[in-house]
C-alpha cells in the first residue's frame, strides 16, 4: 500500500492535501471540519489588521469550468482572529495561519498579533486579483514588493513563511526567486487567476458585486500547473501546488510538475467537504497501480 504521508516545512502531514486559504476558514470550527474530512493540513482565511466585511453579495458564483469569486478579505481583524485561533490543540492536523495587508507595516502588525497562535506555518498572499489595495491590484506581486514584504514578515516570526503567488505573472520565476531570497520557506503556487467577469444578460449587470473576481477550478488548472513547473526549475524551496485540483490525478499532475503538496478549495463545491479523503484515496490508488511507494518519488517527475 502506497505511503501518502509527507513532510513539509517540518510539518508531518498524513496526506498531501491542504485546505486552501479563503475557503471556509474564518473560525477554528470551520478548519476543524475540513480536517475531520481528511485534509492533511488546513489554512485559515486571511486575516487583516482591521475587521473587514468584504464585498456585498454576490461574492462567489460558478460557471461551466469553475468558480468566480470576489469576497474581499472579510475577516474579524487581527485581534479577534488571534483569540479565535489561540488554542488549536483539538485540531488533529497542522494549521497554517494566513495574513495579508495593504502596506508592509500591516503585514508585520498582523504577524505580531498572531504570534500567540500555535500555527505550524504562516502564509501570505501577495496575489489577490480583485481586492483594491491588496495583491496584484496593489503591485504586491512585483519582485521588489514581494522581497520587501517577505523580508519584513520573516524577521517577525520563527515560523516558516509561505508566499502565495499569482498565476497571471508572466515572469513568475523571478518573483519566486525574490521570495526565496527574502527568506520565504515555501511558495504556494498559487492564487486565483484573472480577474474575470460574468454578466447576467437578463439583468444586464456583472453578477459579482465587486464586478470582477478570481477564476478558480478546472479552468485554472493548466495555468497553475505550468507555473508550478516553471517555479520548480527556478527555486529550491518547496512548492504547494494550488489551482483546479479536483481529483487524485490532478494532484499527481501538480506533484509531477514539482509541487510537494496540493491546495484544495473549489473542489469542495464539486465533490463535497470530504474531497480531501477522496483525493487522498485516489492518489494512493494511482501510486499502487503505477508502483510508486512515496509521494517524494513523484515530485518533479515531469522534469526528468
Amino acid at each position: 500500500m502506497a505511503d501518502i504521508r509527507i513532510e513539509l516545512l517540518g510539518m508531518k502531514l498524513r496526506n498531501p492535501t491542504i485546505l486552501a486559504s479563503g475557503i471556509v476558514g474564518s473560525t477554528k470550527a470551520s478548519v476543524a471540519f475540513a480536517a475531520a474530512n481528511g485534509a492533511g493540513a488546513v489554512t485559515i482565511k486571511s486575516v487583516t489588521r482591521d475587521r473587514r466585511d468584504g464585498f456585498a453579495n454576490p461574492t462567489i458564483i460558478t460557471f461551466e469550468a469553475g468558480m468566480l469569486n470576489a469576497v474581499g478579505y472579510s475577516n474579524p481583524g487581527a485581534k479577534q482572529a488571534a483569540m479565535e485561533f489561540a488554542d488549536l490543540s483539538d485540531i488533529p492536523v497542522p494549521v497554517i495561519g494566513s495574513l495579508t495587508g495593504t502596506k508592509t507595516e500591516d503585514f508585520v502588525y498582523v504577524m505580531q498579533q498572531l504570534k500567540g497562535c500555535p500555527f505550524a506555518a504562516i502564509e501570505m498572499p501577495l496575489s489577490c486579483p480583485h481586492t483594491p489595495g491588496f495583491g496584484t491590484m496593489a503591485g504586491q506581486h512585483s519582485p521588489e514588493a514581494t522581497k520587501e514584504i517577505t523580508k519584513a514578515v520573516v524577521k517577525e516570526t520563527k515560523l516558516p513563511v509561505i508566499v502565495k503567488l499569482s498565476p497571471v505573472i508572466q515572469e513568475i520565476a523571478d518573483v519566486a526567486k525574490a521570495a526565496e531570497k527574502a527568506g520565504a520557506a515555501a511558495i504556494n503556487m498559487g492564487n486565483t487567476a484573472g480577474p474575470g467577469m460574468i454578466i447576467n444578460t437578463g439583468l444586464k449587470k456583472p453578477v459579482l458585486s465587486g464586478t470582477a473576481g478570481g477564476i478558480s477550478g478546472p479552468a485554472l488548472r493548466p495555468l497553475a500547473v505550468r507555473c508550478v513547473y516553471d517555479i520548480y526549475k527556478a527555486v529550491k524551496i518547496p512548492i504547494i501546488g494550488t489551482g483546479g485540483v479536483m481529483t487524485g490525478n490532478d494532484a499527481i499532475e501538480m506533484l509531477m510538475a514539482g509541487a510537494q503538496a496540493v491546495g484544495i478549495g473549489t473542489a469542495i463545491h464539486y465533490r463535497g467537504i470530504d474531497v480531501f479523503n477522496k483525493v487522498s484515496k485516489e492518489i494512493a490508488q494511482f501510486m499502487d497501480q503505477e508502483g510508486y511507494r512515496s509521494i517524494k518519488e513523484m515530485v518533479g517527475a515531469a522534469h526528468a
Binding site: 473560525t27 470550527a29 476543524a32 475540513a34 453579495n57 462567489i60
Partner: peptide, 22 residues
C-alpha cells in the same frame, strides 16, 4: 450567509464547523 454554496464559510457553526447552507 454569503455564497450559499458551501465555500465562503460565513455560516459555519460552532463547534462542528458544519455549514448551515449545506
Amino acid at each position: 450567509m454569503k455564497c450559499g454554496i458551501g465555500i465562503c464559510g460565513s455560516c459555519c457553526i460552532d463547534p462542528t464547523g458544519e455549514r448551515i447552507c449545506t
